[in-house]
Amino acid sequence: MALYIGKRVLYGFIAIWIISILSFIIIQLPPGDYVSSYIANLAAQGSSLDQAEAENLRIFYGLDKPWHIQYLKWASRIVTGDLGYSFEWEKPVMSVIQGRILTTVLLALFALVFTWLFAIPIGIYSAVHKYSIGDYLATFLGFLGLAIPDFLIALIAMWFGYSIFGWSVGGLFSPEFGTAPWSIAKFLDLMKHLWVPVIILGTAGMAAMIRVVRANLLDELSKPYVVTARAKGISEWKLIMKYPVRMALNPVISMSAYLLPYLISGSVIVSVVLSLPTLGPTLLKSLLSQDSYLAGGIIFLIGIFTILGTLISDLLLLWIDPRIKFEAR
């Protein structure tokens, strides 16, 4: 078991390392180096940077060194929590995104919970009542959910909210809380606004989840142990919940590991459409203005979240499936 956990944690670290390389590449991708983008940006605002200052900056970021030294410098700063400096915001990257990390994670997590809450019961219903009207309906809605990109769902939701109820759905905070420091009242306000994007984001993953639950449950329902349990005289409902559903949860959990990156991905686009104060719109802006440390930092952070998510789901699997525990001993 320790071996299993150790292996998973090791993979996690390798993945983080690869993501750090990817993020670094993203920082390097725009033509010219960071300082020249910075100077160009300053020039656009009408100010400038003298030669000596520019040279100092280059040395600080190690831009005069070969790329692998630059990477090492960048990576060692990251470990201390320094993601670089955003010239667009004229603040360290960390302080730009600090307030938005929580909202991003909350949005993705709630969307995941929402997906579970609806997809699992619907999937169970669909499998148990295979080929019933409800099953066909769920399948059809699932197809529809798969076919509508999440930004379109967001658009449609906004449109409905706006044209029917006169709501403007965007944003996560009431105006009075927008810039206020975190408090219980602000958190409650967040909850009040969060459910709309949660539903929008959750719907997208739901279709895939329903399919997984249904297919796996159908598989489990035809296994001999179900007949054995039935032959004991247990009631059908209890039987399904105790045996096949329990077994079908394994793929649900391992799928959630892949759903999380998908949800965080989706949250970026949905947040742009709904202008939510998450990492999404900041990322888009930073990419469009080639604010490279900010963009790289956000991508690195998003990567870390999803890897943490994968790790958690691996550990969950270990907890619910005794077979893994013994195999990996």
Partner: peptide, 16 residues
Amino acid sequence: IIRAVPTIPLWMALSA
């Protein structure tokens, strides 16, 4: 690892 990476932000970065 690729499956654990959120694709849309990376696409966005690469296309940008």
